[in-house]
Design a protein around this nucleic acid. Structure first.
Lengths: 146, 146
DNA sequence: ACCCATTGCGCAATAC
DNA sequence: AGTATTGCGCAATGGG
């Protein structure tokens, strides 16, 4: 998973791939009559030579279109790949953040429990009317809930 | 961004794509000499007609190999797509979890601040030797920090 | 009608 | 020897 093929010519630009792909496929114009049937259509007087026939593969315009499309395809794929990678990165980012948040929760929880304990202690002291001097042991009615 | 083309035949299975793609490309055997000749070779008896020549495109073996590869390609791409989707889902999952965690943090933080305030109040009361009866206003030295 | 963007597909070169 | 991946071009189709 490292080196790339780049089999056929086109080191980067030009070099029109004369044939289909890179081998022995012979191009055959094969202009089909493709009679559009009775598709007369009153409005668009176009010469009908566009959609109905397979388009001459030697046509300059054809090659041009192909070339453009190839570019577009490459671009699109690059973009897609990029996006995928970004998504992957996003996952890691979120995972990190998650850990951070969980750590924070842990800390806050601990702090809370400490404070609650202290508070309960005082409450008891007040209730028993005792002066807090040393460590108390939380006795009955001890439910902090959640 | 919804419907798929599926231009050439193959509704799902079989239908060997006789030609290149779906149009007028005529396949041309173009059998290069490649005569198996007397490919003797002691150990690897290969007829040398494998790597050096373009391989007969009519060859039964060729078609078989192509078919297999096509399958593999499809499979691989499906897998890849699946993975991408999973990753995307993972992102959403993590985002949700993140929100949950943040909500929890918010709650804990609030709880903490309340307790701290109460605690400070009591501290003041104790210090001033005052009986807590009504709402107190947290005056100076009021910093909960973070 | 025209153009670019996306997508399924098959081919060939590689990677494994 | 065989499958899995990947870059690439083609054609159909989706969207402006």
């Amino acid at each position: 998973m490292s080196k790339i093929a780049q089999q056929n010519s086109s080191p980067g630009i030009s070099v029109i791939h004369t044939q289909a792909h890179a081998s022995g496929l012979q191009q055959v114009p094969q202009l089909v009559p493709a009679g559009p049937g009775g598709g007369g259509k009153a409005v668009p007087p176009s010469k009908q030579s566009k959609k109905s026939s397979p388009m001459d593969r030697n046509s300059d315009e054809y090659r041009q279109r192909r070339e453009r499309n190839n570019m577009a395809v490459k671009k699109s794929r690059l973009k897609s790949k990029q996006k995928a990678q970004d998504t992957l990165q996003r996952v890691n980012q979120l995972k990190e953040e998650n850990e951070r948040l969980e750590a924070k929760i842990k800390l806050l929880t601990k702090e809370l429990s400490v404070l609650k304990d202290l508070f309960l202690e005082h409450a008891h002291n007040l209730a028993d009317n005792v002066q807090p001097t040393s460590t108390e042991n939380t006795t009955a009615s001890d439910n902090a809930g959640q």
